[in-house]
Design a protein around this nucleic acid. Structure first.
Lengths: 186, 186
DNA sequence: TGGCGATGTCAACACTTGTTGGCCTACACT
DNA sequence: AGTGTAGGCCAACAAGTGTTGACATCGCCA
């Protein structure tokens, strides 16, 4: 009600985006075709072009992603690792956008850039709040573990990693993130 | 000398494989074209087909990979983690086969299967030798961290991860692997 | 009522892809 | 010398891709 768009262009645009996310997540950038996305959205391929210009821009629009990292300022420092681990695993399960981004990032330059950006602008600041020093390094290390989980659990689906429950996984990963966050190497 | 092959077919076959590894590593499975690989090998595309049948089989041949994990049986248990970390980072740098495998595994089913196989048959046994229990889980966790490094350092090239020296990286990762190997969650 | 802009469809273009079959060349063996 | 055969090249096919432009339809507003 009281929308700003004349009729239902926003609706179909959104349905295209949903279909795009699904396809990109499942097939990766190159194997996800505009025709298939359009078919999923019950629409003509040319509409996709009209709304988004080209495939690259469509992907950019579909891969808008927010980690939604929790506020950890008033949390005991020694609990931040576990908290982060829990949040990340939960965030992964509910949203396939990040899987689309991850799958695409392996062959598409735009996706890589977006990925770098996300970890720099969203993870970096959180780390900065609790880390004593070496913020960049710590954020990078956290990224290795977090993305390693995403890769093995949701993309490669290595059996033992898939088999672990959310809590089990968090219990193992939490201390690792904690050490990367506030510990020292060696 | 005293080879079993009549003339130099083995040589061109090998040059095709080398070009294929390079292309697959750089571009991933779908974007690496047979024509490009053939051009790199200074040969006609049809030769690639004759020798390897089709693209899928070519990839299978090019992505033959051995982790070459070190023997850790007579090593103090508490040093295995660091040792493993060092070996893995070194192994990554020298050989682009694993990068080809990783890049391809994100969109190609055969590559995923190969990846699973490698970690099951090569990493699993090593873990079994030093782990007190939960071998599968431990191997899986190690895979998350190890592949997370590969992904962020060599594929996504996240700046802070790339910036770390080999030794720095090993110093951070070693204890993580050690805990996954012999520690407990929580 | 007439028209205009937004929403949508159809058919095609230009190009790239994996893959195939026919043809050529040169050497090894009889 | 003659011939078989392995190594190699060329041209083409069929399918699928992103992308484009011309045409249809429908609702709103003057």
């Amino acid at each position: 009600m009281a929308s700003d768009k004349p009729r239902s262009s926003a609706a179909t645009k959104e349905s295209i985006l949903a279909a795009a996310r699904e396809r990109f997540a499942e097939d990766g950038y190159e194997r996800a075709t505009i025709r298939a996305i359009a078919a999923d959205a019950d629409i003509d391929p040319s509409m996709v072009m009209r709304y988004f210009g080209n495939k690259e821009k469509l992907f950019a629009a579909a891969a808008e992603f927010d980690l939604r990292l929790p506020d950890v300022t008033d949390l005991p420092v020694e609990e931040v690792g576990r908290r982060l681990a829990g949040h990340v695993v939960d965030r992964w399960d509910g949203d396939e956008t990040l899987m689309a981004l991850l799958r695409a990032a392996v062959t598409n330059a735009t996706a890589v850039e977006r990925m770098r950006e996300i970890f720099a602008t969203q993870l970096g600041p959180v780390v900065a709040k609790v880390a004593p020093d070496r913020v960049g390094t710590r954020a990078g290390l956290i990224a290795t573990q977090v993305l390693g989980i995403a890769l093995t659990r949701y993309v490669l689906r290595l059996p033992p990693v898939v088999a672990m429950s959310r809590d089990e996984l968090v219990a193992w990963i939490g201390p690792t993130l904690q050490r990367y966050l506030t510990g020292t190497p060696g």
